[in-house]
């Protein structure tokens, strides 16, 4: 099991202003599976991802990555865990503007101090990653010289370079046109199917969710449904149900 949360509860604020962002959620993100997390605004989908990735802490329950209970780790251990076992793709601002494309891709390895002989061992892997994302001719460029889609592809390569157990993607296609978005989603799919990673993607785009193996639906902090072998149409259909009152309250 690559990543999971058990009986996860996350409460923001106190007393009257209290908001229950996660309400006893338990999910698993197994290796080799591409999971999409969907739900209306305020459903707790981002909170779920942040807590599962160790970027945020749970109020109750537990989050695990690769057999390690995140609540037992301090900031430094969490950082090292992120570096080694978790890959991130954010909606925007994924790349360090002062570093070249190649340097951005190898950043997690560099931060871990993996140079010299270890780097030689990584070389082939990095080359193959570069091939997969198809940016071999752009390695020396700066992020500002790339299109949005290219930037997100670099981000995916960066997320995979440390051979993490799980890759978390937060609206990775949110700022992209549909073609670039499809390329990025294709890469995430490759990551799960061919490289055997667990890929978790938060999205509100039914088309994006359609690329996943499984879709989880959250509403009001609760896991309300799952869908295997989704298609964009099916997902859209399911999502429309949330818009019908009285199910779900968009306020958070």
């Amino acid at each position: 099991m690559s990543a999971r949360v058990e009986d996860a509860v996350k409460i923001y604020g106190i007393a009257a202003t209290q908001v229950r962002a996660l309400d006893h959620v338990s999910v698993e993100f197994p290796a080799g599976r591409f999971t999409a997390v969907m739900g209306p605004s305020g459903s707790g989908k981002s909170t779920l991802m942040h807590c599962a990735a160790g970027l945020d802490t749970l109020t109750a329950g537990s989050a695990w990555i690769g057999g390690r209970d995140l609540s037992t780790l301090n900031d430094r251990q969490l950082t090292l865990l992120r570096r080694a076992s978790v890959g991130f793709v954010f909606q925007a601002f994924n790349l360090v503007p002062t570093l070249t494309v190649l340097e951005n891709i190898t950043l997690p390895l560099d931060l871990a101090g993996r140079g010299g002989r270890e780097r030689e061992a990584d070389r082939e892997w990095i080359d193959s990653l570069v091939d997969v994302v198809g940016l071999g001719d752009r390695l020396r460029h700066r992020p500002s010289e790339l299109s949005g889609g290219q930037q997100q592809r670099v981000a995916v390569a960066r997320a995979l370079v440390a051979r993490p157990e799980v890759v978390f993607a937060d609206e990775p296609t949110g700022n992209l046109d549909s073609r670039s978005g499809a390329e990025v989603l294709g890469l995430l799919r490759t990551a799960s199917q061919e490289l055997g990673r667990s890929v978790v993607m938060v999205t509100h785009d039914p088309v994006a969710a359609g690329h996943a193996d499984e879709v989880l639906f959250l509403a009001d902090g609760r896991l309300v449904d799952t869908m295997s072998a989704p298609t964009a149409a099916l997902v859209l259909e399911r999502m429309k149900a949330f818009d019908r009152p009285p199910v779900g309250s968009a306020a958070r």
Binding site: T79, R82, F90, L95, V96
Partner: peptide, 8 residues
């Protein structure tokens, strides 16, 4: 971002 991808 740097902290996110593992800068201590």
């Amino acid at each position: 971002l740097l902290r996110g991808v593992g800068q201590t």
